[in-house]
Design a protein around this nucleic acid. Sequence first.
DNA 1: GCTGCTTAACGGATTACTTCA
DNA 2: GCTGAAGTAATCCGTTAAGCA
Length: 250
Amino acid sequence: MPQHKSSSADIAFQPSPDLNAEPRSLFRGIDVNRAITVIDCDEEVMVSSPNSTVSSLSGKRSEREENDGERASSSLEIDDDGADAAARKKLRLSKEQAAVLEETFKDHNTLNPKQKLALAKQLNLRPRQVEVWFQNRRARTKLKQTEVDCEYLRRCCENLTEENRRLQKEVSELRALKLSPQFYMNMSPPTTLTMCPQCERVAVSSSATTSANGGAAISRQPAHHHRPTPMNSWAAIIPPQPLDAHRPKT
DNA sequence: GCTGCTTAACGGATTACTTCA
DNA sequence: GCTGAAGTAATCCGTTAAGCA
């Protein structure tokens, strides 16, 4: 999805916050590709390396590039047999160029046309090259993020599988226990956990506790209790966990 | 010379916006 | 003024291929 849309009218560059930021120190003094054929970018082509006979003269794009105030390489070399010899001749960006692009990308991962032009000029690249670099860089970022997300989901899945296994085991243990006659014989009288709706404290009411103490049973409920609400005992045992408890902190 | 990886570059699709009938 | 078609620009996405270890 386009993140930055600007009509041809306001292409007159709504200043993005970072746009007017003075080029970083990294920008200064960079003299990449000096030794190479650099025709004044105002008048012709900006070439970044001897190899950069690259062309991207597909209709749409060439129009756009002309609008950018630049023209794609005019050095589109045609073979004797008419073949497009220079097609897709790839250049490697220098370390300095890459560093500057990287720094800029850290600040803002998209460029408006003015920024693109400025950066291109700064680096002796064609605006199209800067544009492509940012596209590819965004793609790499997205890919990395996808990998991180996948890893996170994989771990979640593992945790849930483990939890499921544990619960299944517990269920089968409880079932076995329930079927055993000894279970009932050794069982203490039923205990009900109740919760006072007012103070939300848990109270234990047990028929055994009251009778076993011969009437001197200690009240194990809050003194002010009104009508205790029966409470799921599991809730008292297993504290609720946030869904993303395992999510890696970023 | 072959292979695998990284990445510059490409072409098409999509989206948002403008212009014009 | 509203509407829909056409045009334009920016971006995304999948792919290709150059360059390098």
